[in-house]
Design a protein around this nucleic acid. Structure first.
Lengths: 188, 188
DNA sequence: TTTCAATTGTACCATATGGTACATAGTGTA
DNA sequence: TACACTATGTACCATATGGTACAATTGAAA
């Protein structure tokens, strides 16, 4: 019984990938065990709450990542325009140009939505508010900024759906380019 | 053993609802049996291919419905502008103002995508082409029409994700209104 | 070196799963 | 009425599921 991992956080990326690819229901403990390289013993040691706690932890880490790399800059960086620009770069990289699904979005559509409603809700609310703030800071009035932020999130999520459905990753790149144009060009 | 149903098609709406609410993996035969009111015997009588055939049939019916009520009018109706308008009305009603998920979109994100790739792909391709055709017929040039159609589908799908995530059905209505404006107003 | 808590592997469990077999009951038709 | 064929309910099966129990192993501190 060799000791392999001591940090629970080290497991999250692998687990996230499993949930992303198989959904909550489809991600079996056996599969998670395989992908993380940990047996059930360790898994339930780190996550006594079972699969639900695992998914919760993954959602938590995603929120942390987005907060650090996207939400906070949008909200607080001196140069809001550049923060928006960096948001697009980060999003394109994070979602691997549309090849990678948004776990939170997928959870929102599936049954898992009820179980993780709070975290799903929080993720999108934070993103929307941060983006709206940035848009205000580059000169939009508040109502327009909020509406535009909402629309931007929809386009991002929808493009991910479409990219996968059409199996065409140019879709995502194209959408992001056009969306960025609509956000930064003053007064639509 | 009372005879209850004779038409296989009669089962599809109930089955569609189960798949929509629980996803492919989450829709157990027991649940489908309960919601359709049919025992396993009848279910496997009508769908010898099991769950996969059931989901396939549901996807087929959805495509038929959309073809009849949305795609065909967009493509062939004399008045393209009115067809676009009716598309929005039909979409809002079909998705119950955002309370109802798009089964095809949900399948696109989940594991089921691989299994039903062809049908998922076909649904979105048909919709995109039909909408692009209508946009050309109201005066857009072809490249702009195709880009705009793609974007429209993304907004629709993304708004459904967002509406569920934020648990706010005003999101969907708002998005549809704004989207319609962008599609019909000449030259953005 | 002893001790002890943190890890880990394995065996196990109750249950739910998708699917099959088959006997039985209806139903239309000759 | 007899017949064939379509539906239907039930019992059953192998397997996979999430989860538990627990003993064995480790590393670090005392």
């Amino acid at each position: 019984m060799a000791k392999i991992v001591s940090e629970r956080a080290d497991l999250l990326p692998a687990m996230a990938e499993v949930f992303r690819e198989h959904g909550f229901e489809g991600a079996s403990i056996a599969l998670i065990s395989e992908k993380t390289g940990l047996g059930k013993g360790s898994l339930y040691h780190f996550f006594p709450g079972g699969k639900e706690e695992m998914a919760g932890a993954v959602l938590g880490e995603i929120e942390t990542w987005f907060t650090t790399h996207i939400f906070a800059p949008l909200q607080w960086d001196a140069d809001a325009a550049s923060a928006i620009d960096r948001m697009f770069r980060a999003v394109i990289e994070y979602f691997d140009s549309g090849r990678r699904v948004c776990l939170v979005g997928a959870f929102a559509l599936a049954t898992s939505r009820d179980r993780f409603a709070k975290q799903v809700h929080s993720y999108f609310r934070m993103w929307k508010e941060a983006l709206a703030t940035a848009l205000v800071r580059i000169g939009r009035d508040k109502p327009a900024a909020e509406q535009l932020a909402e629309e931007a999130l929809a386009v991002i999520q929808g493009s991910l759906v479409l990219a996968r459905a059409l199996d065409d990753r140019t879709v995502f790149a194209r959408s992001m380019t056009k969306l960025r144009g609509r956000l930064v060009r003053s007064e639509r």
